[in-house]
Design a protein around this nucleic acid. Structure first.
Length: 377
RNA sequence: GGGGGAAUUCCAGAGCGGUCAAAUGGGGCAGACUGUAAAUCUGUUGUCUACGACUUCGAUGGUUCGAAUCCAUCUUCCCCCA
């Protein structure tokens, strides 16, 4: 269930709820735990503390390890990782892109050589739906092909036409699985994914096609794969008018704080990105004052927290000098604290966006922060 | 006391007459990261008035057109025998 509470321009303040329980306030950032854990030593317990509303995991990775049947046996992903909030599972479509050298695409689906041991695995729309059903996530993503950038119009057209056909198969299989008496999460929703590379005509055609299938939500995929941010914004501008108003919109894999602010201004409700966790592990920390590279020598004896204006578990207790030392000394605590900090920041960013939308001050918020949060302190 | 070995750029450690400002690690410094094959990857790391020049390979003195590389002496460390 999704409803828009308020519009400011095209920006939307909404509420989303799923059968499993829990209301998600949008715009929202989904914290990425690909393998059922946030990389860097962050557990579901920590997610609650840092204000995460919804978690994202991955079909391909959990299918390989520990295996979706194992997760099903353990009661589904919620119980397995002890997270009772909403979970969205990505379909494996991104791995068609990221593991390009290890896969082969056909009409039926994609054959991967496992990145772990090389064994062949086949994943098509039906398999992806089955795996996500076993995982018992609240939102399943359609199996798509995330096309690399740059792509030719010819390839992008053939690919998004196939992705459209795949969606029909996803919808049918998803409906069948949800109706089974022993299905893990009978209320599981399905989001369709728009593709079409950087070609507005393909994007619009594809969006119109998949909108007919009446999915529970729609995502824009295949962006932030190397194209300039302006191109990404142009694509959102082109596609957004063709997305159902009463369904959540999810911009997959995006992005920087400014990307998110800009996408919210264009009517996007859901986001996810590896950036806060990955950059955190690499010592790059987001703050309201700009980004901090904690590895820099200038912080060697800096007694202040990463950000004076942050109340995260790291900033509450530790100095920049200490965090830098932990990194230099290869202590895992460095990763954990940094990831907690960055995720805290992202969740707080979304909270402030929602507050601004509630207060009708989104434009001011955007003017104040867009394009500025990535600058170095 | 006798015999043997070694000293290389921040560290470890290659090099054994020219193609050596000197491999490779590590450390240092900086950068990248957008539905996670990422606790990863990339650049850089003698000095300068910098597409060239200058000073380096324990010290000093030699041999040679040319030495981190060969010789002599010295210094320091390590090993073995007494």
């Amino acid at each position: 269930m999704f409803k828009v509470i308020k519009y400011q321009g095209r920006a939307r303040r909404g509420q989303f709820s799923c059968a499993h329980g829990g209301v998600v306030q949008t715009p929202v950032f989904m914290n990425v735990g690909t393998q059922g854990a946030i990389k860097g030593g962050v557990s579901a317990h920590d997610l609650r503390e840092i204000g995460c509303q919804i978690e994202l995991s991955n079909t391909y990775h959990l299918h390989l390890r520990p295996g979706d049947q194992v997760v099903r046996t353990m009661g589904g992903l919620h119980q397995f990782m002890n997270w009772d909030g909403p979970i969205l599972t990505d379909s494996g479509g991104f791995q068609v892109f990221s593991l390009a050298s290890l896969r082969k695409i056909k009409e039926e689906g994609v054959t991967f050589a496992s990145h772990i041991d090389g064994h062949r695995i086949f994943m098509g729309p039906e398999e992806s739906m089955q795996i996500q059903s076993n995982l018992g996530s609240d939102i399943a993503m359609a199996f798509d092909e995330c096309v690399e950038n740059p792509a030719t119009h010819e390839y992008a057209k053939a690919s998004c036409e196939r992705t459209a056909r795949w969606l029909e198969r996803c919808v049918a299989e998803h409906r069948r699985l949800n109706a089974l008496p022993d299905t893990v999460n009978p209320g599981q929703m399905l989001f369709g994914i728009n593709q079409g590379a950087t070609f507005p005509d393909l994007r619009v055609w594809h969006m119109d096609e998949i909108a007919k299938l009446n999915c529970d939500g729609y995502a824009i995929g295949g962006l932030a794969v190397g194209e300039p941010a302006e191109v990404m914004y142009d694509i959102i501008d082109a596609v957004e008018p063709h997305m159902p108003q009463d369904k959540p919109r999810y911009l997959m894999g995006v992005g920087t704080p400014s990307n998110i602010i800009e996408a919210v201004s264009r009517g996007v409700d859901f986001f996810d990105c590896v950036m806060p966790s990955r950059n955190g592990r690499h010592g790059k920390l987001f703050t309201w004052e700009g980004t901090v590279n904690i590895l820099n020598r200038k912080y060697e004896t800096d007694p202040s927290p990463v950000s004076e204006s942050c109340s995260c578990p790291c900033c509450r207790s530790f100095s920049k000098a200490y965090l830098r030392h932990l990194f230099k000394a290869d202590e895992v605590l460095a990763l954990r604290l940094s990831v907690l900090h960055n995720l805290w920041f992202y969740n707080e960013l979304m909270q402030k966006l929602r507050d601004a939308l509630d207060a009708g001050t989104f434009d001011e918020f955007r003017a104040k922060y867009s394009g500025k949060l990535e600058q170095r302190v």
